[in-house]
Amino acid sequence: MKKIAIIDYGAGNVQSVIFALERFGHNAFLTNQANKIKQADKVIFPGVGEAKSAMKALTELGLNKLIPALTQPVLGICLGMQLMCTHSEENDTEALGIFPVQVKRFNSELKVPQIGWNQIWNLKCDLFKGIDEKSFMYFVHSYYVPENEFSIANSDYGINFSAAMNKDNFYACQFHPEKSGILGHEILRNFLEI
């Protein structure tokens, strides 16, 4: 049985990630303990909410140093992905710096936040094994990561943006796989197989 740690820093609906994993037979545990996170086979770094207060919570727990130093596969989701970047325009927040890219605010005629189902394409890496190009995923966000050399999936909302990224053992997706129906579950399952 794989040990799956979900990083607990008070960030939004982590319960749905746990439930999603349970649906295909995996028990994940919620923790903010450094040793438990380090010993896990996989780490999920979720997040819903505001960047600055999330970074503050991570720093208070000492997780801002721990997360970038992890060596097992780590999956950041939504705000988790944004916090893995160097900096976010959301309240001018210095983030974890795993991906050397900047998070920007949507600045278009379109409504912000983007809420709903959008397509992803240019799928690369095993995270998207068995997932067709232009599959629909569920997004909820006001900030985005521009396309960059680490992008393994793209999407668009007025502008093309990075829907997922990978660098070494770090994976990240802007959409919510835990809320993206069967295909989202496949992505979580793929992550557990990495």
Partner: peptide
Amino acid sequence: VTKIAKRINIP
């Protein structure tokens, strides 16, 4: 709500 969240994989 918990029963729904366990069963349903959309928002």
